[in-house]
């Protein structure tokens, strides 16, 4: 079973009060993301890729279907807790007023992270270095370039170590070297325990285990990066599940059949226990 699953997800957007815009809809989309793997989501502009990951983060109205994180249905936990664990990084980076440090620590100003330890300056510095971001932590966030701001917005999510990363073209504003560095860092953050779905328009970087393609409301899946064979799947050294139960377009019947009633609803808010064989991701960034 995947770490993150969407079953029969139906979403409609932009139809109701704007007759000029063509309504966009996804019907009964199912897919699953395995631990320790990175997936790409491709498709033409306007196909609904951003909409799909918004729906996964419970940030848009959904007509039907269900979302599961490690077998636990989304309804079993507070929506803020869900978004902390299934974290979306939007396409348009937007920083709050303050320094780079203020922005990286922004998640810790929220109630949902109150009981979690604050990262040290050393850890934040290591994150910046890994993303080839050569700016001081005391730099005013408003003075950063577009590409620098995009990386700060991404790193502040990485610092919270969510289990599922939903990245919406976060490397679009970056030069090739930075995009490579961000790709490597993504793989490091995902490690053995997390998973990541990336919307990308750049050419494949070989880090994707599989690629979803969204077109005409249909989600298809192919193993490996599109166009080029992945020469190194970073997750390969860890213990991984046998096969990816991955998305199969409009047929909800094709999604894995395990019932959600088996999942313990009470254990909603804490992270599930992890297989003892694998090393924790936490050490990754430093």
């Amino acid at each position: 079973m995947g770490l993150f699953e969407a079953r029969g997800l139906s979403v409609a957007y932009g139809a109701a009060d704007d007759p000029g815009a063509a309504p966009m809809r996804l019907d009964a989309v199912s897919f699953s993301l395995e631990r320790g793997r990175i997936y790409d989501l491709t498709g033409p502009s306007g196909a609904g890729k951003s909409m799909l990951i918004r729906a996964c983060a419970q940030m848009m109205a959904v007509e039907g279907g269900c979302l599961l994180l490690d077998g636990v249905a989304s309804g079993a936990m507070a929506v803020q807790e869900w978004r902390r664990r299934v974290c979306l990084v939007p396409q348009h980076a937007s920083l709050v007023a303050g320094t780079v440090r203020d922005n990286l620590l922004l998640p810790w100003t929220l109630k949902v992270n109150r009981s979690r330890p604050l990262p040290t300056d050393g850890e934040l510095r290591a994150l910046l270095d890994a993303a080839l971001l050569d700016v001081s932590l005391d730099r005013d966030g408003a003075k950063l370039s577009g590409g620098q701001a995009a990386r700060v917005a991404l790193l502040r999510v990485f610092a919270t170590k969510p289990e599922v990363l939903l990245l919406d073209e976060v490397d679009a504003a970056l030069d090739d070297a930075s995009a490579q560095a961000v790709g490597a860092l993504t793989a490091e953050v995902v490690g053995q325990e997390a998973t990541c779905l990336r919307i990308r328009h750049r050419s494949p970087d070989g880090r994707a285990f599989g690629t979803f393609h969204l077109e005409g409301g249909c989600l298809s899946y192919a193993e490996g990066g599109r166009g080029r064979m992945p020469e190194a799947v970073p997750a390969s050294e860890g213990p991984v599940a046998a096969s990816p139960n991955s998305g199969l377009g409009r047929s909800p019947a094709a999604s894995p059949g395990s019932g959600l009633d088996g999942s313990p609803a009470a254990s909603s808010t804490r992270a599930p226990e992890r297989p003892s064989a694998s090393a924790p991701t936490e050490g990754g960034e430093s």
């Binding site: 983060a57 940030m59 803020q80 807790e81 978004r83 902390r84 974290c87 979306l88 990084v89 939007p90 980076a93 937007s94 922004l106 998640p107 929220l110 109630k111 949902v112 992270n113 917005a153 502040r156 999510v157 919270t160």
Partner: peptide, 10 residues
């Protein structure tokens, strides 16, 4: 606010 809510803000 979109970014904040994605991070788990109320």
């Amino acid at each position: 606010m979109f970014a904040l809510i994605a991070l788990g803000a109320t």
